[in-house]
Design a protein around this nucleic acid. Structure first.
Lengths: 188, 188
DNA sequence: GGGTCCATGTAACTGGTTACATGATTCT
DNA sequence: AGAATCATGTAACCAGTTACATGGACCC
């Protein structure tokens, strides 16, 4: 069960288009960053490794006068390995780490007032994130096609992946906010 | 923002009682393991470090004939550092890693049939986990005190932490299952 | 006697973050 | 001219997993 997820994340991003290392870093700051990300310092060595393994190749492109950038594309071997990974059933992680919930487990170390502040702070942050995600979603309805019209989401829609991660991120935050609201009375 | 969470997880567990390294490992296999865990190979060195830092001390106890175990207790300095951490507002993580959702982002690499199998497999696993968590909850109602009676949950309840992590784990899985069910039609 | 659990540790490795380091391009 | 962004890389460190290694206690 040894899976280099970053490897497949990169292969997946390159499935549809050519990207530079910098572009990949940028992608992880967008919607998919809700569920996977990496810093450039991890991405560049991984790209080198994937080229060595024959899963990618690259061409050097000149930007402006002399700035060189490496544009990576996926090879047939890369597509094959990506597909193999994508098809494999994903086991549930035993632990989904959440330091806030660890603090909640140790709630008895705090006074009710201290716990309330911590709890309400988390509620506010989660609510703000939820608002932000919903705004992103609203802005993307034209891209996704509105519900109950000829443009409704379907399997072959070019932005299905994007739609799935956004709706899932919203569901995750919605559930968090609701749980917090259901239990805030314990601290009042 | 450099936080050694395992350090505080251990301090928190030792806040109320003495534990051996083995006991701490066992705790991470129970309810709190939904939100934080560590293997014994990480715990033993960390315990040694915390003793060196003066946040814990231990006494050696003999189990049976000659089996030695180290029972750790938190020091005043340890309690102070634990409280400091527990009080600090917990920032939201930018990324909550989920390899299944990464696969969903790359859904276009699969056929509808392949995607359906993957999706339904995840739905089944999440549903099974949810059933399991709900059973745990049902078994613990006597410990928690039933709702709308004199035993209802409140801030000073000795099992509030336990109650919070279990209800949160249930909410998390419930939300996951509902999202999966809401979108399974895309693959049929 | 054998299996499961209790109990503690180390070594090698992988994954991931922070910091160091450099330089070009684009926009205002 | 200066700021933000584009662009690539390495080094040092920290966090976490898997495997190696050993032995006692308890129950059947």
């Amino acid at each position: 069960m040894i899976v280099r997820v970053l490897k497949y994340a990169i292969l997946g991003l390159l499935y549809r288009q050519e990207y530079s290392g910098y572009d990949i870093t940028s992608q992880f700051k967008k919607e998919i960053g809700q569920f996977w990300s990496a810093k450039h310092s991890q991405i560049y060595p991984e790209l080198r490794k994937l080229v060595e393994e024959g899963l990618l190749h690259f061409r050097t492109q000149i930007q402006g006068e002399k700035l060189e950038k490496k544009m990576y594309t996926i090879t047939e071997a890369g597509r094959k390995e990506l597909l193999e990974w994508a098809l494999s059933p994903e086991p549930l992680p035993e632990t989904e780490k959440d330091a806030f919930m660890l603090k909640m487990y140790f709630i008895h170390t705090l006074s009710q007032e201290e716990a309330r502040i911590l709890f309400e702070n988390q509620l506010q942050q989660r609510q703000e994130k939820l608002v932000h995600l919903k705004q992103e979603y609203e802005q993307l309805i034209p891209l996704f096609g509105e519900e109950n019209t000829s443009g409704a989401m379907h399997f072959d829609h070019p932005h299905l992946g994007h739609y799935l991660v956004l709706t899932k991120a919203i569901a995750r935050e919605q559930s968090y906010v609701e749980w917090l609201k259901r239990h805030v009375h314990l601290f009042l």
